[in-house]
Design a protein around this nucleic acid. Structure first.
Lengths: 193, 193
DNA sequence: GACGATAACTAGCGCTTGCTTGGTTTTATG
DNA sequence: CATAAAACCAAGCAAGCGCTAGTTATCGTC
């Protein structure tokens, strides 16, 4: 089996798997379907991945790493704590759209990961959410908002994650509108949309 | 096959199926597992349901019907539009907790329904969301809030539905705390928690 | 106590699943 | 241009899948 996790070929395969897992679900996607979509035979799949679950892990991990990178970049150019909150919301929506397949899979197929894989990914997610924790904490220190920070963070992230259920970027609402409205809700400011 | 959809026995079986589907996912739950948990043999399952997918449909339908009933009751005793919004949020959280299995299944296993089943359940869900549409519209007419009503409804329902991911009622936060905070966010009032 | 209806059982069919094996072709590198 | 590594293929195994067919127990009703 090829162990090079950063090979270009592997990334292609992971993206293809993400699409199938997103469209039909992990359990309903067979290794034969995956292989067909990848243009190889099902046996060849196991040259790239040790088993089917590892493909799922790779899909979710790639989505999370990408999300963290985008958040880091977007956050870099934000000054005030309100700007930072907006930056996080905007970055979150960006990855949810750009990398939709992987994130839908992360949300829906968590259960199919082995415990070991789950533990690894929980670490990644916690690292990501730390940015949110810090920024919301800043908003509190700046006096922009009061109350339970953990609750506010979870309600906000919930509202954002749920957008994969209904949001299509070809409508009237832009991702920026969504981010604006969410920040307004969290900071209890009048709606700007 | 037994066609009586309201039999007590069938409701028991549906509740058991809900638990297994919630814990392991629809595709990963075999008819043999279901039958074991029900205390019958796998063949006997098909005396009660025509196929596996019908069990999934029954689980989700029961959760939705229950949610609508709770919402109807809770709404009846609310007077002001703010009270109504709180009532809806509280009712939503109640069913999410009381009937957690069914709602988790509804969220995660939607994809495994046949198109026909999905269409039927979409009608139910739309009927339910109409309550939300009406109440949020009332809040706007009362001048409590401005902006895009559909966006606000979706962000609110998203935040609520996402609670199944993290909320455990044995912590410090009560469901009422959650409802209060959500209403405060939607109506842009200071946090009360 | 015979009857129909309900609910359960036994046995297994036909097919699909994830994965393995053993060997061949392609690609990259010194 | 020789060689190793990477990529692929054809074939198939063992296990498990949803579901069916035919049969037997249980129960209220006349």
């Amino acid at each position: 089996m090829n162990l090079n996790k950063n090979s270009k070929r592997r990334k292609e395969l992971v993206a293809i798997a993400a699409r199938l897992f997103c469209d039909q679900g992990y359990e309903s996607t067979t290794v034969r379907m995956l292989a067909d979509a990848m243009g190889i035979k099902s046996g060849s799949l196991f040259h790239h991945f040790s088993d089917k679950q590892e493909i799922l892990y790779a899909v979710i991990e790639s989505g999370m790493l990408h999300a963290m990178e985008i958040a880091r970049q977007t956050l870099a150019s934000a000054r005030t704590s309100k700007e930072k909150l907006h930056a996080l919301a905007r970055a979150h929506l960006s990855t949810l759209l750009e990398d939709r397949d992987a994130h839908v899979v992360a949300i829906y197929e968590w259960r199919s990961l082995t415990q070991e894989s789950r533990d690894l990914l929980v670490e990644l997610r916690d690292a990501y959410e730390t940015s949110w924790r810090e920024v919301i904490s800043e908003c509190h220190e700046a006096g922009l908002i009061k109350g339970d920070q953990g609750l506010q963070r979870r309600l906000a992230l919930g509202a954002l994650n749920w957008t994969v259920q209904w949001y299509h970027p070809d409508g009237e609402l832009t991702p920026d509108d969504l981010a604006q409205e969410l920040v307004a809700m969290v900071l209890r400011e009048p709606s700007a949309v």
